[in-house]
Design a protein around this nucleic acid. Sequence first.
DNA 1: GGAGTTGTTTAGGA
DNA 2: TTCCTAAACAACTC
Length: 264
Amino acid sequence: MPELAEVEYYRKQWDPGLGQKILEVTCREDRRIFRGIPAGLLPTTLQGARLISSETHGKQMLFRFDKGSLGVHLGMTGELYREEPGHTPAKHAHLILRQKKQDLVFSDPRLFGRVRLETGKGEPTWWQDLPPDPRSKAFTLAVVREALTRRKGTPLKAALLQQEHFPGIGNWMADEILWQSHLKPMRKCGTVTEEESQILWKTIRVISRTAIRIIGKDFSDPPEDWLFGHRWKKGGFCPRCGLELKRDEVGGRTTCWCPHCQPQ
DNA sequence: GGAGTTGTTTAGGA
DNA sequence: TTCCTAAACAACTC
């Protein structure tokens, strides 16, 4: 489910726990999402630690504590939420940080998500090494040009899903970006003109920021004149031209597009 | 019961 | 080497 805006929404769900100590850590360490973390290290590190701050970068989240930090990726079905203190864990709740006033929960039925642990004071290297977030100043036109050049044989849709170039963009955002840019999803990156690159760059920035503002705030739906609300069901109609939308598999993912508005 | 799912990693081929 | 595709991971919904 989560792309950069949804990730921002879920990050905020733990905000009530800011400044407060973790009294107890409940986790199922054998679950796939904890891969790479030595047994016992998670409770040892976080028990008694105070949650200081949190931020998102693309689909990645970082929760900073006064000792160490916690990285969270939600995968396809991960969620963060809060519960009454001392509640009984739900079936797919894998990590619960128990505080005085609330329990902070990470659940993920499909286990495609991932939790990382940094025991040192500083920023984890994986966090420092993330490529420019599409809403940041560092995400320049040159970044888009570079990606299109490097992936010249890849369809645009598949390239937009590559997190090393466009961190935070997922399936629905990629479709939305191409639709608003009037670019066909199966178009090869190498054939995109300079003018089209600029349109693509601007559209990525506008959609990222707008999605964060709307979905990141309270999980509201984007505007009706976006592709978003029309792309899910089969037989949806283009909100711009009114013709029937098409569905194809591009880059291994279901892709919704408008043959009339995205002719090439 | 089968198909599909808003994600990432890996293996293997080109 | 570099780039690209398909499969694997896993559980739920329609």
